[in-house]
């Protein structure tokens, strides 16, 4: 019996309103992402890749269709429970790091743990471990503005994995970094995938970044397609 996919999308539709106009973004997307996968989602601006990522991360809801992540159909969860679900199942990595500027690296990484029942001492041990994993054990008391872009993104990675979520979503994680820092971050994500078994979905414009993934999916005008030239192209399931 094959393992259940980490993510399953079935006939997912999503549209936005622009004034009186309804702009379709996702048009019947259906596909699976296996547990432990490192998937790059590519496509031109406005193709719907960030929307797709938001649906999978549980911060947006589909107009129709099922978004099943870690066995939970997110379309059926009310926002209150969705917040709890995100806290335990998803780690976020953003293009601009999205750290709280008034909190230290330690406090930023600790944020998601404040949503758990862990006692202070255990939280401390977890945060120290996560920061040492990303090579910032000596920067715990630094504020974001005292860190370089690459270091800030590493703090964000530590924050994303602090609750040990099965899924990590990254929206243009290297978009604001120089080449060297970008490579560092991508290697770190590869390590998270390889060594900790995290399922990673990364939205990127950058082919070099996408090449670090196991597989690449392309999205254009709300429809998934695969490029046979991609080293590890994923075949989408039947499109709507």
């Amino acid at each position: 019996m094959s393992e259940a996919p980490a993510v399953r999308l079935v006939e997912v539709h999503k549209a936005y309103r622009r004034g009186a106009q309804r702009v379709p973004v996702l048009a019947g997307i259906t596909f699976d992402i296996a547990a432990g996968e490192f998937l790059a989602l590519m496509g031109p601006s406005g193709s719907g890749k960030s929307t797709l990522l938001n649906l999978i991360a549980g911060i947006d809801q589909a107009d129709s269709g099922d978004v099943i992540v870690a066995g939970e159909n997110l379309a059926r969860l009310p926002e209150r429970l969705l917040a709890d679900w995100r806290a335990t199942h998803v780690g976020f990595i953003f293009q601009f790091y999205n750290l709280m500027p008034v909190l230290t690296a330690y406090e930023n990484v600790q944020l998601p743990l404040l949503l758990t029942d862990l006692p202070r001492r255990e939280r401390r041990a977890h945060v120290e471990h996560a920061l040492s994993l990303v090579g910032l054990a000596d920067r715990m008391s630094h504020y974001p503005n005292e860190l370089s872009g690459g270091q800030q993104q590493r703090v964000a990675i530590a924050r994303a994995l602090i609750t040990d979520p099965p899924l990590i979503v990254a929206d243009e994680p290297t978009g604001d970094l120089d080449r060297e820092s970008a490579a560092d971050v991508l290697h770190m994500m590869q390590a998270l995938n390889r060594e900790l078994g995290k399922t990673i979905i990364m939205v990127t414009h950058d082919q070099r970044a996408a090449d670090h993934a196991h597989s690449i999916m392309r999205l254009d005008k709300g429809v998934l397609w695969s490029n046979p030239d991609d080293a590890a192209a994923v075949q989408p399931a039947g499109q709507g």
Binding site: A57, I59, A83, A87, F92, F94, N98, L111
Partner: peptide
């Protein structure tokens, strides 16, 4: 606004 979005994404409720 960005910080609010981030807090909510991380799982803090409204």
């Amino acid at each position: 606004v960005g910080e609010i979005g981030t807090l909510r994404a991380l799982g803090f409720r409204a």
